[in-house]
């Protein structure tokens, strides 16, 4: 139980990852898939951010004001995961944008957001051509 409580953010991140992952993979609705992608990516960023956090430390920016106030500046949180999260957010924003644009196009062309129906329609058209 103690183990669970100590690693609570990691556990919640992994559970969210599983939820987002299954929605992205299994849900038929394009919009829900994109929501799943958002949940999945955010959970990974939570996981990364937690990995960089060291309890009871300051941000890795040391100013004179902090030194004057007597804050222990030798211990600071790891800045690399924060940088990675920022990069990751940029990547996932661009991917989400493309997926949304594709969804708009799909709805214009096929009149539905259900990916299974769309695949079925494309296959039917292909068969009719033969």
């Amino acid at each position: 139980m103690n183990y669970l409580l100590n690693n609570l953010p990691e556990y919640s991140a992994v559970i969210c990852f599983a939820i987002g992952f299954s929605i992205l993979l299994l849900n038929r609705n394009m919009i829900k898939k994109i929501l799943g992608l958002g949940i999945m990516d955010s959970s990974i960023y939570l996981f990364l951010a937690v990995k960089g956090y060291v309890a009871g430390t300051v941000a890795p920016i040391v100013t004179l004001a902090e030194q004057a106030a007597g804050v222990d500046t030798t211990l600071y949180t790891n800045p690399i995961p924060a940088g990675l999260v920022l990069t990751g957010i940029v990547v996932s924003v661009s991917v989400t944008a493309i997926l949304l644009a594709l969804t708009v196009k799909l709805h214009e062309e096929f009149g539905t957001l259900n990916i299974d129906e769309i695949i079925h329609m494309v296959r039917e058209e292909d068969r009719r051509k033969e």
């Binding site: 990852f17 992205l24 992608l37 799909l106 062309e109 096929f110 990916i115 494309v122």
Partner: peptide, 27 residues
């Protein structure tokens, strides 16, 4: 074309599932 549109959507979704796994592996 309709076929390319549907195909690229499927491709993108499967790819994103894959890169999500790759990213959590890195983490």
């Amino acid at each position: 074309g309709r076929q390319a549109l549907a195909a690229s959507t499927r491709y993108l979704i499967m790819s994103l599932v894959g890169s999500g796994m790759f990213l959590i592996g890195i983490c």
